[in-house]
Design a protein around this nucleic acid. Sequence first.
DNA 1: CTGAAAGCGCTTACAG
DNA 2: CTGAAAGCGCTTACAG
Lengths: 341, 341
Amino acid sequence: MRPSRSIPTLDDVAKKAGVSTATVSRCLNSPERVVQTTRKRVMKAVDALGYTPNFGARVMAAKRTFTIGAIIPTMENSIFARGLQAFQEALHTRGYTLLVSSTAYRPEVEEEQIRALVARGADGLLLIGHERDPALYRYLERQAVPALIAWAYAPDMQHPAIGFDNRAAMRLLAEEVIARGHRRIGVISATVKGNDRASERLEGIKDAASAHGIPPEHLCVIETPYGIETGADAMTQLMQELQPPTAVMCGNDVLAAGALRAARAMGLAVPEDVSVTGFDDIELARIVTPTLTTVHVPHREMGTKAAIALIGLVEGGPVGPPVELQISVELRESLGPAKSA
Amino acid sequence: MRPSRSIPTLDDVAKKAGVSTATVSRCLNSPERVVQTTRKRVMKAVDALGYTPNFGARVMAAKRTFTIGAIIPTMENSIFARGLQAFQEALHTRGYTLLVSSTAYRPEVEEEQIRALVARGADGLLLIGHERDPALYRYLERQAVPALIAWAYAPDMQHPAIGFDNRAAMRLLAEEVIARGHRRIGVISATVKGNDRASERLEGIKDAASAHGIPPEHLCVIETPYGIETGADAMTQLMQELQPPTAVMCGNDVLAAGALRAARAMGLAVPEDVSVTGFDDIELARIVTPTLTTVHVPHREMGTKAAIALIGLVEGGPVGPPVELQISVELRESLGPAKSA
DNA sequence: CTGAAAGCGCTTACAG
DNA sequence: CTGAAAGCGCTTACAG
């Protein structure tokens, strides 16, 4: 007799119900294969003992956890929150549990988290962006853990992916800015190293500039870590130039919110004195004053489709081509004509 | 010989290195107990095979995962994000991995997630708020998984906790509102059911009202799910009353941001026409226009101390009394004197 | 310092 | 429909 304080096992239940462990296991996993009379007896024992299966043992024996891991750069400011919420909901209705961890935008932390989640038996992984050490992809392949890349898209991507073309999207927005007569354009970019979304968005601005006769090296680009404060600091710096920009394009809405705050602090009216744009269209974009012109990303659609695609891979389905979602430019108050145009 | 595609096991490594599995296990877990020559040989085999320990097996054999689970109501709007980030950082430096899941404020989902995390071998759990089915606490006790409650505090709490007194904090803010002459006070509360933070904050407002001769039933209270939109709708409704309030106190900053937006949409100036307050002091509070008067919560401090306390419990330390953190009222632009005062 | 072997708590062919 | 038993991949006393 083991002490009553210890956690009951399958064996305890089997003894109490007077059946084999196999039968108890079946009652729990495929109840239709057990006759009702014994099933009832077993379930009574389960309840009486307060039995819960040991997950480690179960995983080891069944090779399956119904757990999906998501590794995102940050949980702050809800850039990924909305998409992730939809992702979780879609997983949940299909019987999977989502476990999330974040990396603070540090590749070495991401690697740790990937290994941690794989080690904990994740059946599949959601990763943000495609740029990472090839060894990691090889590792995932060796471990036979499917990974789906989200928030990024390119037709030639080597891995299963769902997202949008960050470069083309930002180019589209930059075209709108240039169309309003802006020639002196400032850019507040998130740190580019290890962040393909940031670097591609920056390239998109350069693409549009080149196409309209603005030499990309004339763009005044400030690169800064992600945050409201850092966005505000960058804006302050940009507007103190001898020839300050008439429009400032930010790598995301959070940086843009910081830029707006800095503009107000400097007594500059937006968009009369300077236009500001963002990217992502998170809730923030419609809360700030003035409301923010930005690129709308279909967060929930991406989350839901990512869940369906990833489960498909986990359950042995074929790898499809990368999926591209459509974005759109949201024109709001913060973008106006160039001051001196 | 197993097919080369399958995942290498301890046994494979042992064979390749010509040692026993025990020795391989020791190399990985307590390398100082193996002489360097054989250790090198083993490590070479580990690398050659690309071996990673199977977590399930390890958990089952060792009864320890160095995993902490956190279950939060929502990942959106970063109410919990900042505290959680600090929590994660503190865990990480101490060798623990954080896994997060969210419940969309639904108790039954929380229960599932708690069981899921326990089943997956979490060594300890961080939970938000103290109000939940007692059976859940009994379950955790039976499973011997320590749980720490955060974001809530009361001297008589039955479980390990770190947080602040939501009721007293909101009362403090309400006193400030009343001190500015407001007598007609509207309240936009988050849904109270199953959310002790929301109900205690509401009680705090009633406490202050009673203390200053305002019958609590004269407060116009609207209860609404969490969100910007819902906050805006509630505000619209409040301001359409025959005798609209001169101040609207919101259960959190997100609802307050919605209220500010609604006020603007209705052509009302804040705080000239109506004052608005929040709770939490998330980044949003300083981004909105006007800036938001709110209750400042020490998110990062709470996260860091929670990590230290929870690890203490996980590693067998004694259960201390609930820890109370100090909050403060942040007076900003959105609170002014009562219009008709 | 190292190995043989038991055991962790499940699942699942295989028989019956 | 049910059971005996092997096996999942590790860790850890216990010997030597």
